[in-house]
């Protein structure tokens, strides 16, 4: 994770676009400017970044389902529960499951775990829209390469 760059997912380790599931490894850094403010002398991963981690994990699944033909944006978070503090250095596993694939939107359930224990979960709604710019699509493909989304899911022109 590079918190200050909003790079929450280190590696997509399981991706099943047809089955609607994804799992990703996310290692909380030992140090980040974020921890200087959250909180001074008592660093914790902000809860909003736990939610963002779930959103990005689910987002990789949706991008793969469209083969990067369309972009996904987080639109709604429901039933978010931040169950435990997450300190620097923790290894997190984020997973998401597609609940409903609507027309131009999708609903997913996300779950974040540390050492097999659930630390956060939420229901997430995404808008699925045309890429606003070709450059953003290129950036997303670069990011897909970085997190290990297999090239077989990239093929939309």
């Amino acid at each position: 994770m590079r918190l200050e760059y909003f790079q929450m997912v280190d590696r997509v380790v399981a991706l099943d676009p047809a089955g609607g599931t994804v799992r990703a490894d996310c290692h909380v850094p030992e140090a980040s400017p974020v921890f200087e403010g959250h909180f001074p002398g008592h660093p914790l991963l902000p809860g909003v970044l736990m939610i963002e981690t779930l959103a990005q994990t689910g987002g990789w699944l949706l991008l793969a389902r469209t083969r990067f033909a369309r972009m996904v944006f987080l639109a709604q978070v429901r039933e978010a529960k931040l169950r435990s503090f997450v300190a620097p250095g923790r290894a997190l596993v984020a997973s998401a499951r597609l609940v409903h694939d609507g027309s131009g939107y999708a609903v997913m359930e996300g779950r974040l775990e540390a050492d097999g224990k659930r630390v956060a979960d939420a229901e997430l709604t995404f808008r699925i829209v045309a890429f606003p710019t070709p450059d953003l699509r290129a950036q997303m493909l670069d990011a897909a390469r970085r997190v290990g989304v297999a090239e077989e899911w990239w093929d939309a022109g």
Binding site: A75, Q76, H100, G102, Y105, V107, T125, R127
Partner: peptide, 12 residues
């Protein structure tokens, strides 16, 4: 945004 919720509920 509310219409997305409505659509989700109708779809279900």
């Amino acid at each position: 945004l509310d219409f997305l919720d409505v659509a989700f509920a109708i779809d279900k």
